[in-house]
Structures are given as C-alpha cells and as structure tokens.
Simulated assay, not measured.
Amino acid sequence: MNEILSKPVLNVEDIQKYLEIGRRQSYELCNSGAFRVLRIGQRIKVPTQSFLEWVNGNN
C-alpha cells in the first residue's frame, strides 16, 4: 500500500487497489467530485494529496 501512496499522482487502478473496490466503483468515485481529478485526454489522474485528504475526511 505504501508504494501506491508514494506516487505524486494516482490513477484509477491505484485507487481501486488502495480502497479494495471494483473498477466500476473506482471510476464512479473519481467522477463523483469527492476529490480533485485531472483529466488528460481520456485518462484520469488524481493528486495523491487530494485523495488522502478525502480519505481522512479533511475535504
């Protein structure tokens, strides 16, 4: 798990692994607006700091 959070930017698969949820749920979460998401073409990238703030309830 630590190797996932050591990256400055996460992708949907990283979030899926960290939260132990399905791929569809991971995409729905990224599209929910719960944390900051960067879209590069069709790719979704999430700043790790933004994701951790959401996980810790600091949003």
Rank of each mutant, 00 (worst) to 15 (best):
E28G: 07
L38Y: 11
S50V: 06
C30S: 08
V46Q: 04
N11T: 15
G57N: 04
A34F: 06
S50T: 03
V12A: 11
E53T: 01
Q25N: 10
R43V: 10
I15W: 05
T48Y: 02
N11P: 00
E28T: 12
S50N: 02
L29W: 09
N11L: 04
I40T: 05
K45H: 07
G57Y: 03
N11Y: 05
P47W: 05
S6H: 08
Y27H: 13
I44R: 09
V55G: 02
N11I: 07
S6W: 06
E20W: 06
I44K: 09
T48P: 01
N58Y: 06
G33S: 13
L10R: 01
R43K: 14
G41M: 07
R36L: 08
Y27L: 13
R43M: 12
N56H: 13
C30A: 13
E28K: 10
E3M: 10
F51V: 05
N58C: 12
N56A: 13
N56D: 10
I15H: 04
L5V: 15
L5C: 06
K17M: 14
V37N: 01
K17G: 04
F51A: 01
E3G: 00
E28P: 01
N11R: 11
L19N: 08
E53C: 08
L19G: 06
S26I: 14
M1V: 15
N31G: 05
K7G: 06
G22T: 14
L38D: 02
Q42I: 11
G22A: 12
R24P: 01
N56K: 08
V55F: 09
C30M: 04
R23V: 14
I44D: 00
I15P: 03
E13V: 12
